[in-house]
């Protein structure tokens, strides 16, 4: 059975782009969240195998969402996909529990590579 992924990004364009890439590579996108709050709620409901997480979002940012999801599931597999690649942010995300940090813009292959790495 295909591994399931929850996509989180505040722009519909990015969610669409990620969904296309991820599904083309054999994964099943089971949910899309537009902000951190939605991501946490959908994680609880859908229990996806993996999550992609943006950082800068309205209502609840990605770092807070990562922390909340890790509380629900300490084994959660979260990849950050954000334009905000400054060192303090990367460190904060990884400390909060993210398994990888991809700085936008990234190639499709990079996302897939990261998903493969964390799902094994």
């Amino acid at each position: 059975m295909a591994k399931t992924v929850l996509i989180t990004d505040d722009t519909a364009f990015m969610r669409m782009t990620l969904k296309n890439v991820i599904e083309k590579n054999g994964y099943n996108v089971v949910g899309e969240a537009g902000d951190g709050e939605e991501a946490v709620a959908l994680y609880r409901e859908l229990k996806p195998d993996m999550v992609t997480m943006d950082i800068t979002m309205p209502k609840m940012d990605g770092i807070t969402a990562i922390k909340e999801i890790m509380k629900i599931d300490p084994g959660a597999k979260i990849i950050v996909c954000s334009a905000m690649g400054q060192k303090p942010m990367v460190i904060e995300a990884l400390s909060a529990g993210a398994k990888d940090f991809l700085v936008k813009p990234f190639d499709a292959e990079r996302v897939v590579e990261s998903l493969r790495k964390i799902s094994s």
């Binding site: 722009t11 690649g85 400054q86």
Partner: peptide, 28 residues
């Protein structure tokens, strides 16, 4: 949505470059 993302990436890349040079945090 596409333009928002494009602008986001451009502006944030600009800030990332400055941040790296100055070691100052600049969060959009």
């Amino acid at each position: 949505s596409a333009l928002q993302e494009l602008g986001n990436i451009m502006i944030t890349s600009y800030l990332n470059a400055l941040a790296k040079m100055t070691t100052l945090l600049m969060a959009p």
